[in-house]
Design a protein around this nucleic acid. Structure first.
Length: 496
RNA sequence: GGUCCCAUCGUCUAGCGGCCUAGGACACCGCCCUCUCACGGCGGAGACACGGGUUCGAUUCCCGUUGGGACUACCA
């Protein structure tokens, strides 16, 4: 049987597959993973699929993919197994049922035959009378005969925990210290649902015990449930793990917790928007945790060396994306051209700028132009706009108004461009250096300022006013396309 | 309504009684670099919610007020 020394750190990330991996959960998983790595402990992935009504079919895949994408590999769990399995709660049903029945036998839990309708009515009355909400313990004192009778009638039932009527329960959170809850404020919560599945309360307590979890790291929204869990540990006579409640993510506008209304909330969405896992991890790391230094940049490995639960903060965190964007730009600039090009390919394919699969020459060319735009994009998804005029053979000719130089006329502009076409045509070697020299020579010969000459060229060949440096841009584009696009622009100026 | 949590620049935060004329980062503004846009460099503005205590001394400790948030399901 499964047995380990109590000293070792065993942490679990226990998502419920009711949707795509939420960004808040991703941070929890990160902290779990870091604590495990820091201490040489074990990181466990456990799927809490006990709500069959809200089950999303591909959620488990998404959760696994999201964790892998972020670099958070698990030591025990789906796909990798482990001695404390199974790691899907739906495969542990008999366990929960036995433990629930056990509590009933000990008089610490009871069968409840109340119908959903009755409960709803009860709740309605409580709200109407401004009374505290909670189960009214209608079935708490059913006699054994009554229970047998109801069961014989085939009535559905749940198993509820019998919360002691008097007294207090002291709960400890590693970050916040002791918290005291009065039993009177706790109701007899459900342990086992009528479909035979456990509630979170039962399942998580049973599994955390059986899997010998040392630290329970979860969201702040669980604080109010913690006294119930302590009561359960007490009833079973089990040793408590340490509890760490992470501050929740608030919406950037400061109104309530982060929700779909405020943009991306799943890891998948951030990935699709063009965020790098390195950036997301770094951002999440510092959202609620701070090192004892001023260091802002961390790889997973670096973070794993210095991470500590004592330095996790307790106040709610506004999930503002500004810093994530900054991190993303930073990490994009740090990538090698080869790496960045590879990461951009899917985005370019999605936008129809590259075929799938991508031919070798195309990838080589992309790698060549990537450095020109690398410091100009903050999201991978911005790559298409940044390189479209490189990847397309033809661009739609710019409008006349945008081509015309400042305080100048169409004729003047066309004359400048013609002169440049003429100069470029004679160039044998269309390199950055020769381009720069000839362009500057033309500028001087015409008695113009650089800006007045460079800008119409830039717009002619790209259609944009904001681009990489002109000389490197032209060289990367190649002489034929440059001349063609310049002639196209001249035509617009003269005939449009 | 009830229970609980939280409270330093717009945001993330440092601070664990004197080092604070409150530090850093993002965002913002200005200047520089410059062919545009970025990148980069330099500089600027910007916070201890309020009221009581405790103390020689409070951003730091205690209480209250206010504000924000979470939970209040046979969901997690």
């Amino acid at each position: 049987m499964f047995c380990l020394s109590k000293k070792v750190v065993r942490v679990r990330f226990a998502p419920s597959p009711t949707g795509y991996q939420h960004i808040g959960g991703a941070r929890t998983a990160l902290y779990d993973w870091l604590l495990a790595k820091k201490t040489g402990g074990t990181f466990i992935l456990r799927i809490e699929d006990t709500d069959r009504n809200r089950l999303v079919p591909d959620a488990v895949e998404d959760i696994k993919n999201s964790l892998k994408w972020m670099g958070l590999d698990w030591d025990e769990g789906p796909d990798v197994g482990g001695e404390a399995g199974p790691y899907f709660q739906s495969e542990r049903l008999d366990l929960y049922q036995n433990y629930a029945e056990d509590l009933v036998k000990k008089g610490k839990a009871y069968y409840c035959f109340c119908t959903p309708e009755r409960l709803e009515e009860m709740r309605g009355k409580q709200e109407l009378n401004n009374q505290p909400s909670g189960y009214d313990r209608h079935c708490r004192d059913l006699t054994w005969d009554q229970v047998e009778e109801y069961k014989a009638q085939g009535r559905k039932y749940v198993i509820r925990f019998k919360v002691p009527l008097q007294g207090k329960i002291e709960v400890k959170d590693e970050l916040r210290g002791e918290m005291v809850f009065d039993h009177e404020t706790l109701d007899d919560f459900v342990l086992l649902k009528s479909d035979g599945y456990p509630t979170y309360h039962l399942a998580s307590v049973v599994d955390d015990h059986l899997m010998e979890i040392s630290h329970v790291i979860r969201g702040e929204e669980w604080i109010v449930s913690t006294p119930r869990h302590f009561l359960l540990y007490q009833a079973f006579g089990w040793e408590l793990p340490a509890f760490i409640h992470l501050p929740i993510f608030l919406s950037p506008d400061g109104k309530g917790k982060l929700s779909k209304r405020h943009g991306a909330t799943s890891v998948r969405e951030f990935r699709e928007k063009g965020y790098l896992p390195e950036a997301l991890v770094n951002f999440l790391l510092l959202l609620g945790w701070h090192p004892s230094t001023d260091q802002e940049l961390f790889t997973l490995e670096e973070a794993a060396k210095v991470f500590s639960i004592e330095r996790i903060s307790t106040s709610p965190v506004s999930f503002s994306l500004d810093k994530l964007d900054w991190y993303n730009g930073l990490y994009i600039r740090k990538l090698s051209p080869e790496d960045l090009a590879k990461r951009c390919v899917p985005f370019l394919q999605k936008d129809g700028l590259l075929p799938d699969p991508c031919p070798r020459e195309q990838l080589t060319y992309l790698t060549k132009i990537i450095p020109l735009v690398q410091e100009r994009i903050k999201l991978l998804s911005e790559i298409s706009k940044a390189v479209s005029y490189f990847l397309k053979e033809e661009i739609s000719p710019p409008a006349k108004e945008v081509l015309i130089i400042k305080k100048g006329t169409a004729e003047e502009t066309a004359a400048i461009l013609k002169k440049i076409v003429e100069t470029f045509s004679k160039l044998e070697d269309f390199s950055e250096e020769t381009i720069e020299k000839s362009l500057r020579d033309v500028t001087e010969a015409l008695g113009e300022k650089p800006g007045r000459v460079f800008m119409p060229v830039r717009i002619s060949v790209t259609g944009e006013t904001a681009t990489p440096g002109l000389f490197e841009l032209l060289a990367a584009l190649g002489k034929p396309r440059v001349i063609h696009r310049l002639q196209q622009a001249i035509a617009v100026l003269e005939y449009a």
